[in-house]
Amino acid sequence: MSVTREQVAKIAALARINVDEHELDRMVPEFNNLLAWVEQLGDVDTSSVEPMTAVIEQKLRLRADVVDADPLTGGGRRDAILANAPAAEHGFFGVPKVIE
């Protein structure tokens, strides 16, 4: 697998990362080196191996349906939520007008 210069530019744009022409020149071969390196894993026959989803053997934990059971992961903390907002107004986040 390899990527083209256009693909890298597109991914950068989708991720809202500004990459100039000079950086692209450097990044495309870098990406392709990485991809080729990882691709070596494809040489290993894994047909009889279960996919591993976690390094430690453990199951997904679920939470009970209780509101604000743990204050750290509950609501009712608007001031903290808005504390870093550049423009908090009337309890809302203010952002530059975005209309599609």
Partner: peptide, 24 residues
């Protein structure tokens, strides 16, 4: 449900803006 899919914040309709938002 009473709480959200991945956090403990309430799902109740009609609350004050951003009053039911957790750090998650």
């Amino acid at each position: 449900s009473k709480a959200k899919l991945f956090s403990g914040a309430s799902t109740e309709f009609g609350a004050e803006p951003n009053a039911q938002v957790s750090l998650v």
